[in-house]
Design a binder for these strands. Sequence first.
DNA 1: AAGTGGTCTAGACCACGTC
DNA 2: ACGTGGTCTAGACCACTTT
Lengths: 242, 242
Amino acid sequence: MIPEAPTFSPLYRQIKDLMMQALEAGEWRPGQVIPSEQELAARFNVSQGTVRKAVDEMAAENLLVRKQGKGTFVASHHDPRAFFRFLRLVPLNADITPPASVPLDCWRAKAGQEASRMLDIKPGDPIIIVRRLLKFSGQPVVVDEIYLPGEIFQGLTLEVLQSWSGSLYSLFETRFGLRMIRAQERIRAVAADRSVCDALGVTEGHPLLSVERVTYTYGDKPVEWRRGLYLTDEHYYLNELN
Amino acid sequence: MIPEAPTFSPLYRQIKDLMMQALEAGEWRPGQVIPSEQELAARFNVSQGTVRKAVDEMAAENLLVRKQGKGTFVASHHDPRAFFRFLRLVPLNADITPPASVPLDCWRAKAGQEASRMLDIKPGDPIIIVRRLLKFSGQPVVVDEIYLPGEIFQGLTLEVLQSWSGSLYSLFETRFGLRMIRAQERIRAVAADRSVCDALGVTEGHPLLSVERVTYTYGDKPVEWRRGLYLTDEHYYLNELN
DNA sequence: AAGTGGTCTAGACCACGTC
DNA sequence: ACGTGGTCTAGACCACTTT
């Protein structure tokens, strides 16, 4: 058995914590298989059923993916099904095809009050700011301004962004070993100001969706803060409430 | 054992289906305890573990609520924790206090193309339309226009609405035996038109969040279609992405 | 003390994928 | 044939609530 933690938690949750550590430490990498339930049971000295319950929870949180007959895998942003996990924008009429990401700009700066609070870093710490466009079937629909902690994203340049064909999080995963596991979005309606009119092809004052997102990696550490302006004339933000 | 269904599904899912039927049929009512796991196991001729798995899924879907030592209860909209289950609007600065619902109007009509499609009824079928205001700390923030199938909501009048102090869904539950279990929202940014300016205290063209919601009861049957216009100057729509 | 859900175990068999 | 996760069982003990 596992020695009891100071604050009590059931055995399967302790196992889950140990498995989380293995994920954080990079022992199991995105896309790879993790050991079988029997092996994990032997390693942690518990029954298979207890491992199963830990894996169940992690699968429910989209951290692991079970595949019958093959094994259990670490979730990856490379998986095409993961594309719309954080992007809830859907075309009104057209097909649901992944949009194209067009990087516009990428520069270094120092964190201001808001960025430092959102990213849980000190004011003045280096950050990287990315501006990019999201195009659905050729039409620009989203302008994103993305704030990243400079310490983690060293080496991120416009060239790197431009030479990557997949999703942004897919790039972050392979290039910086970062897996996004959770996000929080604050949505408001705003009027388009001059700086976005050109990019989205609208006139000043046009209603836009402002979507502010903070994204977290393992250990609930915020590693991305972004603000997107969504043109919702031909698209809508879809939210399932369960 | 339960006789096998024509299309195979695991035993615990068959049990879940039977329990869903008991909910739909009103055998177990919102707020009430359901039989203990042992009793259910005896009733369905399966082991307690199998019942447990069925209950687990239903609890994960917010249909049931487990309370250790007391029993398992049918979820209810009377539960104060259920208030913000479908309402994702949060004040920027103030406390999170439940808003007040102010019914403005309630009238009968016949379903048009859009309403009939959304509510899965025939065009021309009777519907009831409700207009109401949502006030956060006295300030009007949301105008809702709510379309309900007339057949289900017979007897719903402005007086009924005005004499009810709880949430709408709480009223629907006690008065019409309807439990909302799932909803889908389509969100867009729009400009305020004349008809809502007074209610929300904004000028024409002010950006508003348009939130269209279809709400489903047991059996994935749509029983409400509403469009809300949210003033997001002092509030935002919060969405957790997991 | 009795009854509830919560955890944990051990073992059996099934369904799926690979060799 | 073998290994994986998926299902099902039976029984034990724990934690919480009520009587």
